Amino acid sequence: MTGSAERPRVVVSVPPGLRDAFFTVETWRRLDAAADLTVLDAHTDRAALAAALPEARALITSWGTPRIEAELLTRAPDLELVAHTGSAVAPYVSEEVFRRGVRVTQAGDEMARPVAEVALTFTLALLHRTHRFDHALRTGASWESAGEAPPRHEIHGSAIGVIGASRTGRAYITLAQALGAQVSVTDPYLSPSDADRLGVQLLPLDELLSSSRIVAVHAPATAETRHLLDAGRLALLPDGAGLVNTARSWLVDESALAAELRTGRIDAAVDVFDAEPLPVGHPFRALPNVLLTPHTAAGTVECRHRLGASAVTEIVRLLDGLPPLTAVGPEALARLH
């Protein structure tokens, strides 16, 4: 589909599979009624994007869309909005986008609930050692030996540490507290008064690590958080503790975590990895004390529908002359991925 002079043009840089996941029939009709659409099936093709941008007032981006930098902006003199269907915008827009006054929106709020639910699922699995029992039975262990595991615990009354009071972190805190967990948080930007309102104890990182039965990582990937959990800090976790990472592998030294896990001293549940797809020979795959999922925490049907609806809402608001609901500024570029 291509645009016309009578109606605003919107470029949709979302591949067919994701379009089906993101846009319900109703949501797509809403977008199609608001604008003439140029839809890019080859959404990673920079030349195709450059050819589509002239006269476009808005662009919907998805994972893999080429980054909008000065060169592409010269092809888009009418561009007013980049609506990203994910959370981190740094891979898709440059400082020049903001300098030119183009609005940038993202749909990160819509991902918080499903990722928090997966983090809670991981938490319960680690507390009850479900992953160890499953691994033992699947690999041929006897019934008696399959039932052997470190002590198990209920979440009610357990000390749960949260690294990062992000959107997802706060959603996870709410879920964990509803089941009776005693939650502590480390976050340099969380004030004592905000911690009180959340009903959490604010702790330094090292103290949180050494005092928690489960530690859930929910911090952003920035220059400052690279390998925040290194070998020294992983060693602070108590024997039998568990680490949950549904955020970014950036935050954890993966080699150090593998070494710690090989000892059997701690358990982990991980959704994000340095190399994706996770190599078949990666040590995590063979360890009985690790629960793995292939970067799917936000992949619910409902979440993906909300991601598409969020982008379309921002497009419609732009064309109706209304301010965006989920705008971010150039400070969002500090979140690397």
Rank of each mutant, 00 (worst) to 15 (best):
G147E: 08
T222Y: 03
A178P: 05
Q201N: 15
V162C: 12
L209R: 09
A141S: 15
L208D: 03
G242R: 04
E117F: 07
H156S: 15
L229A: 05
L190C: 08
P204V: 00
A219T: 01
A136R: 08
F122R: 00
G199Q: 02
A171Q: 11
T123L: 00
D134F: 11
L237I: 06
G169F: 01
A119Y: 08
S166T: 08
A125C: 05
V200F: 04
T139H: 11
S212T: 13
V162Q: 06
V252T: 12
D187R: 12
L202V: 03
G157N: 01
W143V: 15
A235M: 12
D239P: 15
T130K: 03
R248S: 10
L229F: 04
T222A: 06
T222F: 03
T168W: 07
L124A: 11
A219H: 00
S211H: 14
A247D: 02
A235N: 15
S191P: 09
A159S: 15
A181H: 03
H227Q: 15
I214M: 03
L120M: 12
A231M: 07
A181W: 01
L209H: 12
W143K: 12
P188S: 14
S166F: 10
D206Q: 05
G164W: 00
L229S: 05
V200P: 09
A141V: 07
A159C: 11
I163R: 00
L175R: 15
A223M: 08
T139W: 01
L251A: 02
L209G: 13
G147R: 10
G180Y: 03
G161R: 00
L228N: 05
Y172M: 13
A176C: 14
R233Q: 10
H153Y: 14
A159T: 10
S145G: 08
R138A: 13
H135D: 14
A258I: 13
L237S: 09
E254A: 01
S193Y: 14
G140Y: 10
A241W: 13
L202A: 03
L209Q: 11
F133W: 08
A247S: 14
V244Q: 06
L120D: 03
L203N: 11
L120I: 02
I163G: 04
D230I: 09
A149F: 09
H128I: 05
L234Q: 11
I160D: 05
E154W: 02
S142P: 04
E254C: 03
P220H: 01
A149L: 08
G164L: 00
D187N: 11
N245Q: 00
T139N: 09
H153V: 09
A146E: 07
I155M: 13
E207C: 11
R129Y: 02
Y172T: 09
E224C: 04
A258S: 15
L202G: 06
H153P: 03
A176W: 06
G180H: 04
L126D: 07
G140I: 11
L137H: 13
D230N: 13
L120E: 03
G157I: 01
A119M: 13
H135K: 14
V118T: 15
L257N: 04
S191L: 04
P188K: 12
